[in-house]
Every structure is written in C-alpha cells, then in structure tokens.
C-alpha cells in the first residue's frame, strides 16, 4: 500500500457514496445511467469472487464488500425504488456491444486460462469502459447536475491514481501487470474530455453543459 493507491481507493469510495447520497437526498436518479451501474455491478461481482477463496487483509475484504453492496443498493434505487425518475429514454447505449466483445477478449488475452483468472480479466476490461453509457447519456442530454459531475470526477480520478501507484510499484518493487495498466490507461483516457470540462466549468461554479 502506498499513498497513491490509498488516495485512489478513497476517491473510488467517495464517488460511489456521492452517487448514493445524490439519489437518496433528491429521491431521484435523473441523469444517472442505470446501464453503467449494472456494468459496475458486474465488474465487482466478477472481480471479487476471491472473497470466498483467499483472505488478504481486513481492509481488502471490507472495501470489496462495501463496493459490492453499495453498487447493488444503487442498482436497486435506480431500477426499483426510484424507477419513476429513471431517464431510460436517454440511457440507450448498447451495453451488450461492450460486454460480449470484452468477454471474448478476456478469454483470449489473460494471464492464465482458469475460470477465476478469466473472470478477473473480464472485470478489468469491463471496468475500463463501464462509464461509457453514462458519458453517452450526458452527451445526449447535453447536461449533468453538478453533483453528478463530482461523482464522475472522483470516479475518473481513482484509476488515474492507480496508474501512478503502478508506476511507483514498478520502481519500488519491479512489479507491473500489463492487463491492469493498459485497461487503466484506457479507462482514464475516456474521462479526459470530462476532466477538461469539469476543471473549466464546474470548479468555476457553472453548470456543466456539453457542446452539441
């Protein structure tokens, strides 16, 4: 554990709770892509299967359980409790076009051809693009509430901090993992446009609106 990794985890945790608090307080999931949340649910469930097979640390176990539960609660709020506020007309990204090719890629490009390893690889690849339905929704409606943009910023920052952590680990432990690094870079690059708008607009107190 180094400071970049810890900051990344905190940023990730913060993102998930910002989203939950936004939905709970406003009693609405307007502007939130249910599809992205389902993809994140799949990411956590396929990656954290090792909860049942190996114990790493209390920190590790607690964080994994929080990520899974918080995401399942978010999915429940979007599709059940506050379903009336879910903007499904604008959540039209074809998520299956991500999941199917990524499942194929995970079977072809992995560290070891075993069930857990392939599912772990699938979750790493899937996480890198899981935000696409959300970004697509925002570009379609042309706007995002300020709190939604805080959520996206914290979520984008998390993987960026993990990249710094991997650079650090490469120099201190001679450790690196190409699958995680390539997927992490792709994931962070997807947020670049958003980061630019966030810094130029939201920080200056303006509503976020995207050019058509």
């Amino acid at each position: 554990m180094n400071i970049f990794r810890l900051a990344g985890d905190i940023s990730h945790l913060l993102a998930i709770f910002i989203l939950l608090i936004k939905i709970w307080r406003s009693r609405s999931c307007a502007g939130i892509s249910g599809k992205s949340q389902v993809l994140f649910g799949m990411v956590f469930l396929t990656r954290y299967l090792d909860l049942f097979t190996s114990f790493i640390s209390v920190y590790n176990t607690v964080m994994k359980v929080i990520f899974i539960l918080a995401t399942l609660v978010t999915i429940y709020l979007v599709f059940f409790k506050f379903r009336a506020t879910y903007d499904s007309n604008n959540d039209t990204f074809r998520a299956e076009l991500l999941v199917i090719p990524i499942a194929g890629l995970a079977v072809l490009v992995n560290h070891e051809f075993s069930l857990f390893e392939i599912l772990w690889t699938f979750s790493i690849y899937l996480e890198s693009v899981s935000i696409m339905p959300q970004l697509y929704m925002i570009s379609k409606t042309g706007e995002a509430e300020t709190i939604t943009s805080h959520y996206l910023f914290a979520l984008g920052l998390y993987r960026g901090l993990y990249i710094v952590n991997w650079v650090w680990r490469y120099y201190t432990e001679q450790f690196y993992d190409w699958i995680a690094i390539v997927a992490g870079v792709v994931q962070t690059l997807l947020y670049c446009d958003f980061f630019y708008l966030y810094i130029t607009k939201v920080i200056k107190g303006k509503e976020m609106s995207l050019p058509a």
């Binding site: 070891e112 993992d177 995680a180």
Partner: peptide
C-alpha cells in the same frame, strides 16, 4: 503467477 502480487489491489 504474475497476478499474486496484484491481489491486494481493488
């Protein structure tokens, strides 16, 4: 196994 070192990460 390459990934054992990565297992602590989330």
């Amino acid at each position: 196994r390459i990934r054992t070192q990565l297992k602590d990460e989330l």
